[in-house]
Computed example of a mutant assay.
Amino acid sequence: MLAGTTEKPLRPQILAVDDSPDNLWLLSGLLKAKYQLKLASSGEKALEIIAQDTLPDLVLLDVMMSGMSGYEVCRRLKESPRTRHIPIIFLTAMTGTADETTGLEVGAADFISKPINPPILLARVASQLQAKIGADILRNQNEFLDFEVHRRTRELAAIQDVTILAMASLAETRDNETGNHIRRTQHYVKVLATALKDHPRFRLHLDGNVIDMLFKSAPLHDIGKIGIPDRILLKPGRFEPQEFEVMKTHTTLGRDSIQHAEDQLGMAVDFLKYAKEIAYGHHEKWDGSGYPQGLVGDAIPVSARIMAVADVYDALISRRVYKEGMPHGKAVDIMREGRGTHFDPDVFDAFLGVLDRFQEISRTYADSHADMLEKQRSVELAKGDIGSIA
């Protein structure tokens, strides 16, 4: 069965196009016994037949016709994805090199000179149909392989996404934040990175692929909290200085845990590069007063600078078991004080340009009362366990 539509005749189908009735009569007599044959007396009629009927397996096409020339018919067929794979043999009395060059340029597979020599016609037709069978098989195999590659790529991406969210959710179960914090910050990061991608300072750092990887990586920003003791992680009040020093190690713990996973895999993974940057650097500050390294300015990875804005905004507006959420306007006003000290000025200015998108995300992924009650219950249970151990 030859390629074309889902149902093909058993015999190959040929469309013969010539404005001479005598030539069509001759072609019909030579071909109808072996092939299913359709006839067209003009280029326009040929295109009409091809548009409405089952695709032919081969087109025999006169070059010089009244109305649309064979060159133009060929050009149109080769421009369409539906018909570009149909082999075309020109029938022509023009045998000059320039004529053949023109025919090959518009996509002809072969030439047959007029007056038609029957044995040559039959041999050339059989040769082109045989070549088409091989081309169709190869193309179908390639299409199948492309489909399989895309399917497996989607599966691997889905597995990757599920693994990331599972790891992030594991950290969240021990924290006093809700799972929606992960979703909100993930979307904040994407919106902010998209707003920055054409900025002169960031266009070399942010393209569509990098933004997708930042979106994947963002949920792992606090993965290191898994390693922080409950007595500190779940403390509802302010940390004592020594407790805060322990709490700050979640950045290093997060980076190291992701690096360990990458080492176990035995290969570098692009998006994990950003996950490590975000986990390790999202508490750095533009003026160097952050942690764990005290990096200053552009020494802080771009991914971490973007995450810092997203994380602080969400921390301010979100209700926790130990505090009420802050109104959007007040949170933004407080963050303005950190422009140029806590936050990269250009990143913060981009944030001001997408405040409506941040609000939309915060509403879409808002914490429900049930979420907060469940989180409070988890915290209380953990406190009980700590008390019994003590």
Rank of each mutant, 00 (worst) to 15 (best):
I361N: 08
P200N: 15
E172H: 13
G70F: 01
A261I: 04
T6I: 08
T163R: 02
M64I: 01
E143H: 12
E245A: 05
F144I: 14
M267E: 15
K235C: 04
K197T: 09
Q359M: 14
V17Q: 07
G67W: 01
D371S: 12
K383E: 11
F244E: 15
L165T: 12
V332T: 11
Q259H: 09
D22C: 03
D287Y: 00
D161C: 02
V191I: 13
L129D: 01
L27T: 13
R151L: 12
R183G: 07
R75D: 15
S289Y: 00
T54R: 14
P200T: 14
H85C: 07
E44Y: 02
R82I: 14
V73N: 06
A126N: 08
R305F: 06
S257Q: 13
T341D: 02
K276R: 15
A382H: 02
E44C: 05
V59W: 02
H205P: 00
N209E: 09
A131R: 15
I228K: 00
K330S: 09
R377A: 12
P229R: 01
Q160A: 10
A33M: 10
M335Q: 13
R339P: 08
E243H: 06
R238W: 09
I232F: 00
F147M: 12
D110N: 05
R84H: 10
S113I: 05
S368T: 09
S388T: 12
K248T: 13
A158M: 13
I164M: 02
I86F: 05
I228M: 02
K8R: 15
V162D: 07
L204K: 14
T251A: 00
G96I: 12
Q259K: 09
K216Y: 00
I49M: 02
L138R: 09
G254M: 06
A158R: 15
T83R: 00
K34T: 12
A171R: 09
L60G: 04
I49K: 03
Y35A: 10
T249Q: 10
N140H: 08
G4Y: 05
L170F: 04
S257D: 08
R152Q: 12
P301W: 01
P119C: 13
G208S: 14
